[in-house]
Nucleic acid binder design. Structure first.
Lengths: 205, 205, 205, 205
DNA sequence: AATGAATGAGATTTCATTCAT
DNA sequence: AATGAATGAAATCTCATTCAT
């Protein structure tokens, strides 16, 4: 065969996802990833020039975009909900949310890595960037219901903390519940807290 | 160049707190800490035998104990509140809380390190241990208001996520607001969310 | 550059034996051993996890045991000889002794290291332990010919010096005579002195 | 005071002797010597430019010469003794020997250092050089009693081993018996062995 | 294509030596 | 004269990356 075997590349990426999710980018060693993939460390470099490049292949730009999009959609959807306290229920919001959950479950390790294990990698700023994005949207939503945070950075930051908490909850839930259904139930439970808090946040002042 | 041993020792501890808080224990290098302190790496060893020892000097056992105590008191205080939704207000809870906040503000970097940057150090288990402690107390509180989670690990886990979120919020707030008053206001704002969510959590089922 | 892992491993062990025998365990540097082996210092760690581990591979437990056994056998054999002054000759003693000599010649550097260059290593106590062992046996022999040193620490110490001298003589002979036959002749010559002195020692008082 | 205090210099030398004798030249640290002397490490450098220089001051050329001389005299004296087996007794040999013993007792640590702890220092070759010297003399003595070793390097080497053993015995005895009288008695006991062996050595062939 | 041996930079730590006071 | 703080080189060990086969 003259060409790099796609299957090996895939094995490496799989191994990288597992090891990065478990130990973080900085904590992972190329030897450890190679062992997980069942190949030699040197061989990884046939497929990926550097550890960074491997990371970018394991968590590609496209995925990063998609995850951002899903999160922002989730917020957008919120804009169509009159009262966050209604949630969760069988409305547009939940529908989108389900798609989002399905996406996260289909990409457990990538989500974990991006949200909590990217230190040292090219995506180390992702959680912060995602939050900024979410803040921008939340602000719009806020305005739409008569809450303008533009001149109140502090309330914006609180909102950021709330979402940050949500992201971390996602990570811990993904790590704790290997079973998809159990994950959904547990996420619902956390959302109950999250949305009740959020309602209070928006009700405030 | 420097002659006051205590002053240099203090400079090293200061530098260590800064670098550990910024890069984590594992991510920090003795050379980096030395540079931050304006001395040579070797010189650190005249003051602290190992990186671990430096960490323990920067974040001493007594401090760890005190932080645990403050957190648990905070929860205990909650037990005296009939309805978590009342909070925060001018009651016993707030009083204790203020002492806790003052303590955290006086030890910003130490709190940050313990709650979020201790990987690789002797205190790497602190966040988990603190959470366990908090879970135990929260469970007691739950029982006192007729909510027994002993046979419901999933709800217990949700509660853990809620407290984990609170700890992370503390960290982010400390990192974001160098001004003490702004920190207090922002923390209050987050607590509004936290306690409203908590009330809903306990009301549930 | 090198591809036969076993061969390189062997080269490293060889280099370690040479450098340890020449400079002692503590005095040897991994860089020095690497240079002797013609590789980089870091590469040694692909084969041996620590300097200690390299030492243990170069001078394995089994070898240590065997050397102890040979020495004690030698002494035991002496017990079967009526008069140490008869030696050396064509008797059981010489036979055992020859096996012992052959063993030492086949393991020159290892014997040198164990008897005189082990400071800082896991075997640093070997010479003392071996001497204790020899003292125990020599004391038994002494009693068998009516000489009890149990209550005479000073004579026991003299005996220890005698055996210590024998061990050092072994080391110096191994270092001086690369030719096996010459070594044997020289050792015989030293033994002539040793046994004559020993005979006088036991005859005394 | 404008001049370096002789007393401090003396304290440093004393400390150096103690530490070198206990840990060897290479194993000793300047900080350890300073601690033993009750001064600061830096201050040593007011008196001695380097560790080497301190060693040379603690074990001066003159002392090295003197020790060599004593040893060679001891051998010369042997030349006046018809039969080494006569020894030890009240003859010329013993007389000299007593002066030698007194000298060694008056310079315990220096003797120990030169004979067994000089590795890494400028005198690391002293034991070998001393032995060479002794061999030269022993050869002369040998010729005087009809034993010519000039063409028999191997016998010369055996003789070297015998003296090497004697030197090591001196060291061990000095380390073991802090009491001068006990040292003398123990040395006599060893000499009994030594001389009996030596007699046999010379009788041989 | 793959191996895995090899390198070299960097991390922690020690210690002889220098230097500011 | 003395202190002891400070430096810097060297040692052990790790690991991303390169290279010979």
């Amino acid at each position: 065969m003259q060409f790099l075997k796609e299957e090996v590349r895939e094995r490496i990426v799989e191994a990288a996802l597992t090891v990065f999710a478990a130990q973080g980018f900085a904590g992972a060693s190329m030897a450890g990833i190679a062992a997980e993939a069942g190949i030699s460390a040197g061989n990884i470099y046939r497929y990926f020039g550097t550890k960074e490049e491997l990371f970018d292949a394991a968590v590609p730009e496209a995925f990063v975009q998609k995850l951002s999009t899903f999160f922002t959609r989730r917020i957008h959807a919120m804009a169509g909900v009159r009262d966050v306290g209604d949630l969760p229920g069988k409305n547009a919001y939940s529908g989108i949310s389900e798609a989002f959950v399905a996406f996260a479950l289909a990409n457990r390790r990538r989500v974990i890595i991006l949200l909590a294990r990217s230190e040292g990698s090219s995506r180390h700023a992702f959680p912060d960037e995602l939050l900024s994005l979410l803040m921008g949207l939340a602000q719009n939503y806020g305005r739409s219901i008569g809450r303008d945070f533009r001149s109140r950075p502090q309330r914006r930051f609180t909102l950021q903390l709330i979402y940050q908490a949500f992201l971390q909850a996602m990570v811990h839930l993904l790590e704790t519940y290997p079973d998809d259904d159990e994950f959904r139930i547990a996420l619902d439970d956390y959302q109950h807290f999250h949305l009740a808090g959020l309602k209070a946040f928006f009700a405030h002042e």
